[in-house]
Every structure is written in C-alpha cells, then in structure tokens.
Amino acid sequence: MKIDLHCHSRASDGTLTPTELVIRALNQQIDLLALTDHDSVEGLAEARAAAEGSPLRVISGVEVSTRWHSFDIHVVGLDFDSEDPELRALLHRQADQRRRRAETIAEKLTKRQITGTLEDALGYADGGSVGRSHFARVLVDRGIVAAKQAAFDKYLGRGQSAYVPNQWCTIAEAVTRIQGAGGLAVLAHPSKYQLSNKWLRKLLVEFKAAGGDAMEAIHCQQNLQQRQFLQALALEYDLLISAGSDFHFPSRWVELGRGLTRPEQPGVWHQRGWV
C-alpha cells in the first residue's frame, strides 16, 4: 500500500485544488491520502468527492499551527470527525488569527512602499486560509524578489521588516481538540524546525506529555541517516511514526508518495488498521 499522510491544497497554501490533488495522487498510484491543509478542513469534502469510485481512500486531515516557546510547531491531525464542533471552533479561531496577521503583514509592507499586498494575497488564497507564502508569491510575481525564499529572507521571515509573530493555540490544545474529534495527533516534520538536539528532545517530551500520538519520521527529502535518527527518537519517546511528503505544488524535489517507504516499526497505519 502506498500512502501519503501530509499534503496541501488551495484550501490553504497549496497550488492545486483538492480535485487536482486527488487526480495527481491517483496518477502516483497512492492508495491512502490525508489532505492536511493549514488550520482548515474546507477541502476535505471536495477531495472525498473526487476520489469516490476510485482506488484512492481519502481520510480527514489538518495541520494545526501552534506556538511553543518562540517556535512555530505544527501538529497534524489524522482520521477525525471533520464536523466535530470543538475542533471546528478551534480552526475558526485560527483562521481569524491568520486574517489579522495577514492584515498586519500588509501594513508593514505598505510602510516599505509595497502597497496593495493584502488584496493580492487573498486572491492567491482564493477563499482558503491566507498565510505568509501567499505574500511571498505576491512579492515574486511583482518582481520585488526573485524567489519565495528570498521573500522570507528579506521581508517575511523572523526578524525581518514585515514579520508578524503569531498567536496560535498551544500544542496541548491542538492535541486535545484532534483527539476529542477521534483523531490521531502527529508532530509534523520535526527536522524542519532546525532545533538543536536538546530542544528537539524537549519538544518531544512536552508533545508526549500533552498526549501526542505520533511523529512524522518519514519524508521524501531525507537521507537514510536522518530517517533512522527520527525513527529511533520515535521509539525512545514511545510515539508512533507517520509518513508524509508535505506536498504543496509540483516540483522536482517533492512529490506525493515519493520515498515514503514504511518500516516495520509501529506506525499510525498499524494503529488504525489501514494496512
């Protein structure tokens, strides 16, 4: 069975519609897909409808943004009731925070003589949750920077002139709401936070103490040593493992399902009986 338990559509900061994402997953011969948009489950109904009658099974997913010390940490929810009222209320608050943050980012860019960015960023979001990546696209398309990463390095990243700190929920609240809706709470892409070994272990201790179920130990952009390190940490902290590409858009480097080989180590797929 080929799986991918972390990907994004235009309901957040992906570039494909949920339907286009499902078609791509089918072309990649994926059997099980979790659509995990940032703080949104609005793309799930379309994705499930697109997969109906096909070999692809789409399960509910979401990637909840949280605040931990001075870091933005993401918690993926898998296989939950997407209509759960308390989870919906949390995601609504997160969406409100995203909009307020976007307005402040636009104000800061205006002070740098870059005007009208909020309207353009909302246009790129196309009704989905708006984020810094949409502002990065605006800056690239206007020719202000050459690439998205340059937008973060010069304007949107921590310490830069248009950076706005977030007010996301806590890890504990994200875990509680995901599990309250019947889902599994997964620490997303732990290697992407660029934490020292000491801080990564501190994060795992606190995530486990909050009741977290699993961590993403398998990505498509890992070498064998990185994958083995994360799998060993999952065993050490008694966490299941999960696997996801974190696909946002077609590229040479990230593809749905690519390299997500599952080891025998206990994973979310065993816990839920998916394999």
Rank of each mutant, 00 (worst) to 15 (best):
residue 95 A to C: 01
residue 109 L to V: 05
residue 65 S to P: 07
residue 100 R to L: 13
residue 85 P to H: 10
residue 86 E to R: 12
residue 97 Q to G: 13
residue 120 D to P: 00
residue 98 R to T: 09
residue 71 F to W: 13
residue 71 F to G: 00
residue 118 L to H: 08
residue 88 R to K: 09
residue 80 F to V: 00
residue 83 E to G: 08
residue 85 P to Q: 08
residue 62 V to S: 03
residue 101 R to C: 05
residue 113 Q to M: 12
residue 121 A to F: 10
residue 87 L to I: 10
residue 110 T to M: 10
residue 102 A to H: 04
residue 104 T to R: 15
residue 97 Q to M: 15
residue 83 E to Y: 04
residue 88 R to Q: 07
residue 119 E to N: 09
residue 65 S to Q: 06
residue 100 R to P: 03
residue 67 R to T: 13
residue 101 R to V: 06
residue 90 L to C: 08
residue 86 E to Y: 11
residue 122 L to D: 04
residue 125 A to Y: 01
residue 104 T to N: 11
residue 88 R to I: 00
residue 74 H to W: 07
residue 93 R to C: 12
residue 97 Q to I: 14
residue 103 E to C: 05
residue 64 V to L: 11
residue 75 V to C: 02
residue 86 E to T: 13
residue 118 L to Q: 09
residue 74 H to G: 07
residue 83 E to P: 01
residue 100 R to K: 13
residue 85 P to Y: 09
residue 89 A to Q: 13
residue 64 V to K: 01
residue 83 E to S: 12
residue 119 E to F: 03
residue 99 R to E: 12
residue 118 L to P: 04
residue 111 K to H: 12
residue 76 V to D: 01
residue 98 R to E: 07
residue 114 I to Y: 08
residue 113 Q to Y: 12
residue 68 W to A: 03
residue 123 G to V: 10
residue 114 I to A: 04
residue 110 T to Q: 15
residue 63 E to W: 02
residue 92 H to G: 04
residue 93 R to W: 11
residue 67 R to F: 06
residue 97 Q to T: 15
residue 79 D to Y: 11
residue 119 E to D: 14
residue 66 T to L: 01
residue 109 L to I: 04
residue 80 F to G: 00
residue 88 R to G: 06
residue 66 T to E: 02
residue 67 R to D: 14
